[in-house]
Amino acid sequence: MISQLDIKDFTPSADKTIWDVRDAESYQSGHILHAINQPLDTLDKDLLDSTTGDIYVLCGGGTKAVRACALLDELDSTRQIIHLTGGTRGAKAVGMTIVSDE
């Protein structure tokens, strides 16, 4: 099941599964706190099955996250998948902590 949550209404924390589905280079240039880089092309049933609880998905602005959410829902429609609308750009705009690995 896919739902949406505006990034401005989200509080990242270590106890949440947050997947940034951009490529590694984009992720390293800046991502929200506690996000794990899980590029779109790495999403599969094994990964989904090895993860418990809700999964929060975002990208830079929304395009890849929409595709990732659809794919995850197709793999397991019983899982709660939350699309963080606005993505990393939206997070920056509202002053969220952005981590850079560069």
Results as ranks from 00 to 15, higher is better:
residue 82 I to R: 04
residue 88 T to H: 08
residue 50 S to F: 07
residue 80 Q to R: 14
residue 71 L to F: 05
residue 75 L to M: 11
residue 55 I to R: 01
residue 55 I to Q: 00
residue 66 V to T: 11
residue 76 D to C: 07
residue 94 V to Y: 11
residue 47 L to P: 02
residue 56 Y to N: 04
residue 88 T to V: 11
residue 98 I to D: 00
residue 54 D to T: 15
residue 64 K to Q: 11
residue 92 K to M: 14
residue 76 D to P: 03
residue 77 S to F: 03
residue 82 I to W: 02
residue 83 H to F: 13
residue 87 G to Y: 10
residue 62 G to K: 13
residue 93 A to N: 14
residue 87 G to W: 11
residue 51 T to A: 01
residue 75 L to W: 09
residue 71 L to Q: 03
residue 89 R to I: 15
residue 73 D to W: 13
residue 47 L to Y: 13
residue 87 G to V: 13
residue 94 V to S: 13
residue 82 I to P: 00
residue 78 T to F: 15
residue 88 T to W: 09
residue 70 A to K: 03
residue 87 G to M: 11
residue 81 I to C: 01
residue 59 C to R: 00
residue 86 G to K: 03
residue 53 G to Q: 03
residue 62 G to V: 05
residue 56 Y to P: 04
residue 94 V to L: 09
residue 46 D to K: 08
residue 71 L to S: 03
residue 78 T to P: 09
residue 90 G to F: 06
residue 53 G to W: 05
residue 97 T to I: 14
residue 85 T to V: 12
residue 57 V to S: 02
residue 63 T to F: 15
residue 74 E to W: 07
residue 75 L to H: 02
residue 84 L to A: 10
residue 49 D to M: 10
residue 68 A to D: 07
residue 80 Q to D: 14
residue 63 T to H: 13
residue 73 D to H: 13
residue 90 G to N: 08
residue 99 V to D: 05
residue 70 A to G: 05
residue 56 Y to L: 12
residue 52 T to P: 02
residue 57 V to P: 01
residue 67 R to Y: 10
residue 68 A to R: 04
residue 72 L to E: 00
residue 48 L to Y: 03
residue 48 L to E: 01
residue 94 V to C: 15
residue 72 L to C: 00
residue 50 S to W: 11
residue 55 I to N: 01
residue 47 L to R: 12
residue 52 T to G: 12
residue 74 E to V: 01
residue 96 M to C: 04
residue 76 D to W: 02
residue 80 Q to L: 13
residue 53 G to N: 10
residue 95 G to W: 04
residue 77 S to G: 08
residue 47 L to E: 12
residue 53 G to P: 10
residue 70 A to T: 11
residue 53 G to K: 04
residue 82 I to H: 02
residue 83 H to E: 10
residue 67 R to V: 04
residue 87 G to I: 07
residue 91 A to T: 06
residue 94 V to N: 07
residue 61 G to E: 05
residue 94 V to H: 10
residue 95 G to L: 14
residue 80 Q to C: 11
residue 93 A to K: 15
residue 55 I to G: 00
residue 65 A to P: 01
residue 51 T to C: 05
residue 76 D to Q: 09
residue 62 G to R: 05
residue 57 V to F: 01
residue 98 I to G: 00
residue 90 G to M: 08
residue 74 E to H: 12
residue 47 L to W: 13
residue 95 G to K: 12
residue 70 A to Y: 10
residue 84 L to W: 02
residue 85 T to K: 08
residue 98 I to M: 07
residue 80 Q to G: 11
residue 68 A to H: 07
residue 87 G to T: 05
residue 93 A to R: 12
residue 75 L to Q: 00
residue 64 K to P: 06
residue 52 T to K: 14
residue 95 G to Q: 09
residue 72 L to V: 02
residue 89 R to Q: 15
residue 83 H to M: 02
residue 50 S to Q: 04
residue 66 V to W: 12
residue 92 K to L: 15
residue 95 G to S: 06
residue 59 C to W: 03
residue 97 T to A: 12
residue 58 L to N: 10
residue 54 D to Q: 15
residue 93 A to G: 13
residue 78 T to D: 09
residue 81 I to T: 03
residue 64 K to E: 11
residue 59 C to A: 09
residue 80 Q to A: 14
residue 48 L to Q: 06
residue 98 I to E: 02
residue 60 G to C: 05
residue 70 A to C: 08
residue 91 A to R: 05
residue 48 L to W: 03
residue 74 E to G: 15
